[in-house]
């Protein structure tokens, strides 16, 4: 994705955004991916998110607010992507899960199976419940940041986490995953 218009930035701003990229790119990518279920689209969301960061540096001076700000931008960009492609649904069952790691080949295979089972279960949740679980349990954000990213109140965020976890429990129980 290109905007076709170069953004002029100062060297200090460039260093800051590069630093933010290194720290937060994985979380931004994961939030985007769990909404759009497409690696190229998730990468486009990452790109759009950090380019927006260049234009909003005045909002990023408070370090405590950077992560929720970036994830909120990514979440909104990702929602825009799926609304735009409403007529072209993506099958979440076909998504590639992470590259599994482990000390040996068996561990790698088990980790990949677990990640795939979890990914399928996450895909079956409503978008709101899935994002709440991703932010709280995968990205380990405090509940108030989950609420900030999703643009809802803390109680509503907690309810979505609750429902999402219980739906995951229901879908994953009996699969010998714990």
């Amino acid at each position: 994705m290109t905007t076709g218009m170069a953004i002029r930035v100062e060297p200090a701003a460039l260093r800051l955004v590069e630093e933010l990229f290194v720290i937060h790119v994985d979380a931004v990518f994961n939030v985007a991916y769990r909404v759009v279920w497409s690696r190229p689209d998730a990468e486009d969301v990452v790109q759009a998110t950090f380019i927006k960061a260049f234009t909003r540096l005045d909002q990023l001076k408070d370090r405590d607010r950077i992560r929720p700000w970036l994830l909120q931008v990514a979440y909104r960009e990702a929602i825009t992507v799926i609304r735009r492609r409403r007529d072209v649904p993506v099958d979440p069952a076909e998504f590639p899960e992470r590259r599994a790691t482990g000390p040996g080949p068996d561990d790698v295979a088990v980790a990949a199976d677990v990640a795939s089972a979890l990914g399928r279960a996450l895909a079956s949740l409503s978008e709101g419940e899935r994002m709440a679980v991703v932010l709280r349990d995968v990205e380990q954000l405090p509940m108030r940041e989950v609420a900030t990213v999703m643009g809802i109140g803390r109680s509503a965020a907690k309810m979505r986490v609750h429902r999402g976890r219980q739906a995951l429990r229901s879908r994953l129980e009996g699969q010998d995953l714990w």
Binding site: D26, N30, L118, D137, Q140, R169, L177
Partner: peptide, 17 residues
């Protein structure tokens, strides 16, 4: 079981770049 789901998400939910 809910805590197990929470741990599963933490340990296996992140797609590594």
């Amino acid at each position: 079981d809910t805590r197990a789901v929470q741990k599963l998400a933490r340990d296996h939910g992140r797609i590594e770049l």
